[in-house]
Amino acid sequence: MNAMARNHNEDMVRWLKEIGEGSEEAFDRLYGQVVPWLLPMARHLLGDRMEAEDACHDVLLEVIRHPERYDPERGTVEAWLAVQLRSRCLDRLRKRSKIVLKEEAEPIAGFGREPLSRPEETVLARMQGEAVRLALGQLPGLQRRTLAEAYFSSRSQRELAEDWQVPLGTVKSRVRYGLNHLRKALEKMGWAEPEGGDRHG
């Protein structure tokens, strides 16, 4: 995280603390910072402005009620809010799917569940993609470049080694360490289970 982003997050952490102490001004400042990107994200995922506004309202209401639930060890305030927004959007899509299911008298065999699960899967894919992008940005430059080339280009690890004039084992090590650091970054953001499968809190 660069200095500007760190200072930005420190401001938001301070506002959360002040919100917990009852400061309306701190909430107004937080609101002004997060709604401009939370609302478009929710609207894009849900496809409905009123539902998007409701989802954002739910997230911000939870912030007012429990600002202490933010855990700095698991990422930035924005990442915390994004995870909450994802959860709210999924809840609304599940309810929407149940309504559709009730309106279907007898779904045709083989077509009953798959279409209903697609909106949720689409939301997850988009949010996970954004989480991976943010996590990649936290990696050291060499590891970030290696992972990007290894997974988003058509070249093999052997071809990368030849191009960069390093041993194949070096490329493999960079990929392995990069994936390990990527997982840790995603764990902090709440997008990956810690190794061993147990998560406290």
Score class of each variant (00 low, 15 high):
Gly190Val: 05
Val123Ala: 15
Arg174Asp: 10
Glu114Met: 07
Gln165Met: 09
His200Val: 07
Gly32Tyr: 09
Arg174Lys: 14
Glu68Tyr: 11
Val63Arg: 00
Ala192Thr: 05
Gly129Tyr: 11
Gln84Val: 02
Leu90Gly: 03
Glu78His: 10
Leu45Lys: 06
Leu124Thr: 10
Ala105Trp: 06
Arg176Pro: 04
Thr146Val: 13
Ala55Met: 05
Trp37Ala: 03
Glu62Gln: 14
Ala185Trp: 00
Glu159Asp: 15
Arg174Glu: 11
Leu60Met: 14
Pro115Gln: 04
Ala150Trp: 00
Leu147Ile: 10
Met127Lys: 03
Ile99Asp: 05
His66Thr: 13
Leu85Trp: 01
Ser173Glu: 13
Arg113Trp: 10
Asn180His: 12
Leu38Glu: 05
Ala185His: 04
Ser154Arg: 15
Val83His: 09
Arg94Lys: 14
Asn7Glu: 14
Ser97His: 00
Leu60Val: 00
Ala161Val: 11
Arg86Trp: 00
Asp163Asn: 03
Gly169Arg: 13
Met41Val: 07
Leu142Pro: 01
Arg94Asn: 11
Glu62Cys: 03
Asp58Pro: 00
Ile108Thr: 07
Pro40Leu: 08
Gly197Gln: 08
Arg199Lys: 09
His8Gly: 04
Ala42Met: 07
Ala42Asn: 12
Arg6Thr: 15
Thr170Ala: 14
Glu195Trp: 04
Gly201Tyr: 03
Trp15Gln: 11
Glu159Arg: 15
Pro167Trp: 06
Arg94Glu: 12
Ala42Glu: 12
Val166Pro: 02
Val34Phe: 07
Ser173Phe: 08
Ala192His: 09
Pro167Val: 09
Glu195Ala: 06
Leu179Thr: 05
Leu46Met: 10
Gln157Trp: 06
Asn180Thr: 09
Asp71Tyr: 01
Asp28Leu: 13
Ala135Val: 04
Glu10Asn: 12
Lys184Gly: 04
Arg14Tyr: 09
Leu134Asn: 12
Thr122Tyr: 14
Ala185Glu: 06
Gly47Ser: 10
Gly32Gln: 13
Ile108Glu: 15
Gln128Cys: 09
Leu30Met: 07
Pro140His: 10
Ala52Val: 02
Leu186Gln: 03
Glu62Trp: 07
Leu45Asp: 13
Arg155Ser: 11
Glu120Thr: 01
Asn7Thr: 09
His181Ser: 09
Arg145Tyr: 01
Gln33Ile: 09
Val83Ala: 13
